[in-house]
Write a protein that binds this DNA or RNA. Structure first.
Lengths: 93, 93
DNA sequence: TTAAATTAGCCATTATTTGTCAAGTCAATA
DNA sequence: TATTGACTTGACAAATAATGGCTAATTTAA
């Protein structure tokens, strides 16, 4: 999901995989996997990508975090109940 | 949080750490850490504990999952926005 | 105090994630 | 149809994180 979003942004900005990979100083194959969701982006990479592709950092980080949460919950039962508990706990702080 | 809950249940049922640990076939020190949140419970252990302590399995699993989600999100920005995205994605399925 | 219960700290083992490279597919085009 | 460029795939080693098991220390309750 975040990968798909980044791929779209990259293509809108006419960057090749290897060009963006170079800017991020990572392997092209790695970025390919990241964009297709096979591997995770680091938070720092998302922030860097937002700068490079002139995108909204907050939006990207939000999608990135949503991905991680989704991956954690995926396949479990009672996900919505658990989310409610998390929201409750967040309010306490 | 799930650890705290399990500790309460264990004490209500007058089980010692070593007794519950024995039933779960894990080390006492390990269970101690789990109850204090230093280490994670496995899902199977939660299910087993629900049986042993005659507790509501759904409730325990929900708290257990909420813990994992909270841990994933902890310290990040835009958590609530990310949660909304997760809920949206869950609806799509 | 002292004995039982719990916690802390290590270290070895295992699992998961990451980085790197070489080979592969596919589409455009010479 | 051979070549080229962009991207993907798979394999594997390196790095990181999680787990298990043990012993010593600390806390608690009698």
């Amino acid at each position: 999901m975040i990968g798909q979003k980044i791929r779209e942004l990259r293509e809108e900005n006419d960057f090749l995989l290897r060009q963006l990979a170079a800017k991020l100083d990572i392997d092209t194959a790695q970025l390919s996997k990241m964009e297709r969701g096979e591997r995770l982006f680091k938070k720092e990479e998302i922030i860097e990508i937002a700068k490079i592709l002139k995108a909204n950092e907050k939006e990207l980080l939000t999608i990135w975090l949503a991905d991680k949460l989704y991956k954690t919950a995926e396949g479990e039962k009672h996900i919505l109940d658990a989310i409610k508990l998390v929201e409750k706990k967040l309010q306490q702080k």
